[in-house]
Structure formats: C-alpha cells, structure tokens
C-alpha cells in the first residue's frame, strides 16, 4: 500500500527532515511511526498526502507515484486517504454532521447516500446523538472521534493519523486506539504517528522508529 524507497526531504533553508527512508507497508497492515518531536514523523505523513513532496527518492501510495501526480489528479488521490490530526481540524462553524459529510460533499455524493453514510460513521464512533451539535460544544475525545468519522466516512483504503491521542488522557486514548484497531480488523491499512509508548506497546503492532529523519528501528508486528 505504501512504499518508501530512499526518500529524502530537505526543507528550504537546508534542514533535512527525512534521510534515506525506505520501508514498505502492506495492504491491510497496521503500523506506528514513533520518535521524538522533530524526528520527521509529521513530514513522513505529509509526503504520503502530498502536502509536501520528496526532495529525492520515490514514494508509491496505492501503486501511484505521489510526487508525479498532476495538480488536477490530486483531489481524487486524496479521497483514497483518510487523515486524522492531533488538533482535529474540524470546521467550528458547521455541525458535527456537516463536518463528517465534507468528504462526501466534495466528491458529489447524492444527499440521501451522504446522510446514510455519515450516520453510519457517527454510529461507529458513538456520536450519532450529537450530529446537530457544533464541534466546540464537544469534549476533546468527542471532537477527535468526529475527526475519525470524517476520515473514514468515504471508506478510504488507507487511514493516516498524526498524534491522534496527543491531546487526550489515557482512558480516552484507549478508546480512540480501539477504533483504529477496529478499522484495521475490517481491512483498512492504518499508519499512526505517535510517541505514546504505552499505547504502541499495548497494541502489539509493527513500530518504525525515526531519529533525526532516519529509520533506526523497524520491529514487531507480524499482522
């Protein structure tokens, strides 16, 4: 599903965020990227969604060379990748329902189908009762669950998360992690950037450790 080979990323100004990163993530696999802040976790995820492009090396996502995607094709590529953020990135002036519906609205999904799929996603994260509420009226854990519902509402084959539990306490983090494990069990490829060692250890999944932009360890997993 994801294939990094000898990927370098140098930001303007000469900072090397990623140095010679190579790894592969199979379809349906679940893995964590860990490391201290500044190790390159976020940069790695940004390359996958084409927010940033590699300076050197090749990166295939779903058999597509992301760096070579034409500007015109980019939206359609991004619809196949769900992204969850540490700071949720919800639209505060729209209801929970409208936030979750956004990926379907931009894809032109008919209204009836949209309603059905949004409610299915909200039910999955346990927020069906709150569809008419605005995000700021929700707790942090609930807001993150809205973010997750938005990321999975159009059933993308790949789900990315950047420090999804960074702002949440342990109990809420466990709930969120349980959701990701559940998507993984249903066949979604999941890649999570996190430095929460307790959470990573309890999941028993594969872990890629980044240090100063280099992969220094790749262990565990097996499924």
């Amino acid at each position: 599903m994801i294939q990094f080979s000898h990927v370098f990323k140098r930001y303007p100004g000469g900072f090397d965020a990623l140095k010679d990163v190579s790894f592969e993530l199979a379809q349906g696999e679940m893995a964590f990227i860990t490391g201290h802040s500044g190790a390159g976790k976020s940069t790695l995820l940004k390359l996958i969604t084409h927010i940033e492009v590699p300076t050197r090396g090749s990166l295939l996502v779903n058999h597509k060379n992301v760096a070579r995607l034409a500007r015109r094709q980019l939206p359609y590529f991004r619809r196949s990748v769900g992204v969850v953020f540490q700071d949720y990135r919800l639209l505060t002036d729209r209801t929970v329902f409208d936030n979750v519906a956004l990926p379907l609205v931009v894809a032109g999904v008919p209204a009836r189908e949209t309603g059905r799929r949004v409610r299915a996603a909200l039910e999955k994260v346990g927020l069906l009762q709150k569809e008419r509420i605005f995000p700021l009226q929700l707790s942090g854990g609930e807001q993150q669950r809205v973010g997750i519902a938005r990321a999975v509402v159009n059933r993308p084959p790949l789900l990315l998360a950047d420090e999804p539990t960074g702002n949440l306490d342990a109990a809420l983090s466990d709930e969120i992690m349980e959701l990701f494990l559940d998507f993984h069990r249903h066949g979604t490829t999941v890649l999570i950037a996190s430095h929460d060692q307790r959470l990573i250890a309890s999941s028993g999944k594969r872990v890629l450790e980044l240090r100063l932009g280099e992969v220094v360890a790749d262990h565990g997993g097996g499924a």
Binding site: T49, I51, R71, P75, Y76, F77, R78, R79, V83, R89, L91, L102, P103, V106, A107, R150
Partner: peptide
C-alpha cells in the same frame, strides 16, 4: 486547507 485534504477540487 481542510477541504483540500479531504479531496475537494479547485
């Protein structure tokens, strides 16, 4: 930015 990330066209 958010609309772009979820695949909104220009």
């Amino acid at each position: 930015e958010i609309v772009r990330l979820v695949g909104g066209t220009d």
